[in-house]
Design a binder for these strands. Structure first.
Length: 466
DNA sequence: TGAAATGTTGGGGCG
DNA sequence: ACGCCCCAACATTTC
């Protein structure tokens, strides 16, 4: 029997994995994972990856070979050692990854291998969705409503593959990748998560049966169970977007369902932007932001990172992130807006922190979303959007459930006072046992003044040619 | 997938 | 009964 290597990357699943299925149809499968050093993962991602690889290896009967290093060194040698004739992988869409894959593909073909890459990550590959003039979309709504709708509908999930695993000793160990942190904070932080394909499938079922009804409005309420929490699973490819899409489609039609599907569309949009703007992780999409007067404010950045800004909704979000490796989407927008607009700290710093601390840190979603909030990205709004964290907190966490969970020192304040404790009457603070500056910080900036500062900063670049 | 400033309306207190 | 003012509630406009 011939041997086919499947190189796992961000497609850590067996179900609906076109490249893996191709390998399985070509011969006995030798599954491989390579920890590459070119695009370093954050700490949270590494901890997640460890568990995800353990789960994948278990479902592959312990045959998953794991390496750290350069695929261009490892794969040709592995193919030679096992006489492999086929090598498959799932395509990626970041420029460095594409360049490495292209070079590797031609090297392996020169070696005589049948190299097969497939789309296992996106509903629509970036090449499929363009405006009628051939240029890429820069605005989400027409991208999704026109571009995606005009392209071929998302492929239906593949049947479970019939895989014959290559029977050979596995000399490698996932532990040798040293993905687990020391000290071992991952136990607590991962306690609410189940990395791996089964955990992803269970999450989808739980969400569709319990969270989808009421999603359209409930998704904005950080204390409500109306978000899917599929993002880390999607980021590592433990479930395919096609499976999510088509399974959701089996639910009765509703505004809730369509809104959820459009959120998958945002993910597609981010990957489309990344494909067409490969330096999106550091270069402003809107180049006039190159002249934006960012501040160098390490102490403000540190206060933001550690959840000590004195703005309860911001601190709650940053503490949720630190404690759980996740943050509710509405709160992500609020904390990001606060960093880049009120603190005038460059979105690069926010991006780097999210990259390090989010389990779902994604090469496309993370930069696209930070640029969206900063104003330098793909946002159709004709004005400079600045969130008021107190207004957002009052609107989306009116009873303070979310605030009290993550900022417990404020728990005894009333629903009215908890959103802006610096405005609370002294007797209310005293009654709640809070001395501002001791038990909870004074706000590190005045919201009204810093809003004016952001508008003034924007004034300096808004007239510039794009 | 905003917020603030400005405009409009309508009810109640009061001379 | 009437006009006037105040202000909350809502709507519209503007950045």
């Amino acid at each position: 029997m011939t041997v086919a290597i499947h190189w796992f990357r961000r497609d850590l699943r067996l179900a609906d994995n076109p490249a893996l299925t191709h390998a399985a149809q070509s011969g006995a499968v030798l599954p491989v994972f390579i920890l590459e050093s070119d695009t370093p993962l954050g700490g949270a991602s590494r901890a997640w990856l460890h568990r995800s690889l353990m789960a994948l290896n278990a479902s592959l009967n312990g045959t998953l070979r794991v390496y750290a290093g350069n695929p261009a060194d490892i794969l040709p040698r592995l193919a030679k050692d096992h006489g492999a004739t086929t090598l498959t992988w799932t395509r990626r869409y970041d420029a460095p990854g594409i360049a490495r894959d292209t070079a590797l593909k031609s090297a392996l073909r020169d070696q005589g291998l049948d190299v097969h890459s497939a789309n296992g990550t996106l509903l629509w590959e970036p090449m499929e969705v363009n405006k009628s003039d051939g240029t890429p979309y820069r605005v989400f709504t027409p991208f999704f409503r026109k571009g995606c709708a005009a392209a071929a509908p998302p492929r239906a999930p593949l049947a479970w593959p019939n895989i014959t695993l290559l029977n050979a000793p596995n000399p490698t160990s996932i532990d040798d990748l040293h993905l687990c942190p020391t000290p071992a904070w991952d136990q607590d932080v991962l306690s609410d998560w189940t990395p791996g394909e089964q955990g992803a499938t269970d999450r989808l079922q739980t969400f569709l049966s319990q969270g989808l009804t009421g999603y359209k409005d409930g998704r904005d309420i950080p204390s409500a169970p109306h978000v899917s929490r599929l993002s880390p699973h999607l980021a590592f490819g433990e479930i395919s977007p096609n499976t999510v899409w088509h399974t959701a489609k089996t639910c009765p039609p509703s505004n809730d369902r369509e809104h959820f599907l459009s959120e998958l569309g945002w993910r597609e949009f981010s990957y489309n932007l990344l494909f067409h703007n490969p330096d999106m992780d550091w270069q402003n999409l809107n180049r006039k932001f190159d002249a934006f007067p960012w501040r160098d404010a390490p102490e403000a950045l540190a206060a933001w990172q550690t959840g000590k800004t004195g703005i309860p909704i911001v601190d709650a979000g940053m503490r949720e992130l630190w404690q759980t490796g996740y943050m509710h989407n509405r709160v992500r927008m609020i904390v990001a807006s606060f960093l880049v607009k009120n603190l005038l700290v460059h979105w690069h710093h926010g991006l780097a922190w999210f990259h390090d601390t989010l389990f779902d840190a994604d090469p496309a979603n993370n930069p696209a979303s930070w640029q969206w909030v900063a104003g330098s990205g793909a946002d159709a709004a004709p004005y400079f959007r600045i969130f008021n964290p107190v207004t957002q907190s009052t609107r989306f966490d009116p009873q303070g459930h979310y605030l009290r969970r993550y900022v417990p020192e404020l728990a005894r304040l009333s629903d009215k006072n908890i959103h802006a404790p610096w405005e609370a009457p002294p007797e209310a603070l005293h009654h709640a046992g809070i001395a501002l500056g001791t038990d909870y910080p004074h706000p590190i900036v005045d919201l009204r003044e810093s809003r004016q500062g952001a508008l003034a900063a924007y004034d300096r670049i808004k007239g510039m040619p794009v």
